[in-house]
Design a protein around this nucleic acid. Structure first.
Lengths: 251, 251
DNA sequence: ATGAGTTTCTGGTCTATACCAATTTCACAA
DNA sequence: TTGTGAAATTGGTATAGACCAGAAACTCAT
């Protein structure tokens, strides 16, 4: 009769108890950001369970976004979220700086490509039109946070790739090319990671993250930039102030 | 030498092969929405792996959002996403109807509560002010999709809970109380599920979903509704058309 | 102090079981 | 035809090992 102590009839699974215990430790502040969690083998010994059961609890913590682990160094408490204000793209890096977060941008690749069918539709340019594409990894205090792929219509931004891309491209385009971001169509969804994204974010490839897609328009309604961000889910938070529009009468 | 066939040096893990195989089957259309996937034991036999390894592949599919399983009936292919247009809240149910999706609303609970400190701050009402709170489960074609908790300032909506809540409350408030939704502050994030949410959505409690919080204002700037939706991550898609605002000069 | 090599620690993958509980299927009786 | 109850199927949990590979710590000679 070693089932449970005072639960109402049903015993909680062993991994649940460990999971709850660790979660409590973290939310109580006994374990702070980036602090190391007990290893699988240590947990197994301490709770008198098998390593696989201990592992389950730790993996569940990762799924909840409470813990992370990269490479084979151990598991650690996840840092706080970054807030991305959809309406005010310009100040993202400034916001981070202000919060004492060191945001570092790493350029993964940058090249010129012809517009595919999909991109030509999204950006309203003829198929084959020259585009710039660059992929960047954003780290907050050294911690991988999101990967961004941007595709810009090359015609508006001659020599864009010669600039240092480790900065806000919105500001760069405004300063160097007088191209002002005015409105944007946005889509947010949760999905599984692609291989490269998983690698850069240091996550297993079957993990899910949050994707934000955005098409940016100039004041005169010209689409000039397509952006796709893939965030570690536990680190993302998107805010917006929305105008409520009514469906047209015919609908 | 049964490691691999023609990989470049490193063999993919066994569960990865199974995972890729199933994903291919699904994206190729061999397995359609709500079609049953092979059981853990069947997969184990077919791929000559242990049941635990087969299970890993299936669980990974669930994490990606490609498959789901509820209770102990087996695993099935996830249905298509529902798109939630942030700016045009009014037409959500109408949109669903138009796409041939039967959206059913189940009222879980409805009650009057006094404003907590947190809610009084969010809705700009004195602490203790009467509020209506109701929780509803939304199903798309019978499939649990998201749970919504709404909290309305009771003063504006006398007798609100006497109405049938299995309909769009935005429309209800407009029709019966002349309260028009004008703008809203929105926050979107991915987080672990709470116990009740997990139960209603038929998911394990450590799974992550997408949360959308929203405070709705009337045309004259009065906050009258706080809403929190918890979506099954694989079923959610949020769209918006955003105006880009610039940071004020002082910042 | 520096660097190289060894040891220890960590997670990653996998096997072969076992027992449980809910669901579904199916045979059989009323 | 309709129940009803047994049997098969499914996922959920858990064990006790095993071997691998990367990361970190440590030892020791230079």
């Amino acid at each position: 009769m070693d089932q449970n102590e005072l639960d109402e009839g049903t015993a909680a699974p062993a991994f649940q108890k460990v999971l709850d215990h660790l979660r409590d430790q973290i939310s109580a502040g006994a374990l702070k950001e980036h602090a190391a969690l007990p290893s699988e083998r240590t947990l197994a010994k301490d709770f008198n369970i098998s390593r696989m059961t201990a592992r389950r609890a730790l993996v569940a913590l990762e799924m909840e976004g409470v813990a992370y682990n990269s490479k084979r160094r151990g598991r650690f408490v996840s840092p706080k979220r970054l807030t991305y204000n959809i309406g005010s793209v310009v100040s993202f890096k400034a916001d981070a700086d202000q919060l004492g977060i060191e945001l570092k941008i790493e350029v993964i690749s940058a090249e010129q490509i012809p517009a595919s069918a999909e991109l030509s539709a999204a950006l309203s340019v003829p198929e084959g039109e020259a585009l710039y594409r660059y992929t960047r990894l954003f780290r907050a205090n050294g911690h991988p946070t999101f990967v961004e792929e941007e595709i810009a219509v090359a015609r508006y931004f001659p020599g864009l790739l010669d600039h240092d891309l480790r900065q806000s491209t919105t500001l760069l385009m405004e300063r160097e090319y007088d191209m002002i971001s005015h409105t944007g169509d946005i889509v947010i969804r949760m999905r599984g990671l692609k291989e490269q994204e998983a690698m850069l974010l240091e996550l297993p490839s079957f993990q899910a993250g949050i994707e934000l897609k955005q098409i940016t328009y100039s004041p005169d309604g010209i689409a000039f930039l397509f952006a796709r961000q893939m965030w570690r889910g536990e680190l993302a938070e998107f805010t917006a102030h929305a105008m409520v529009t009514r469906p047209t009468a015919s609908l």
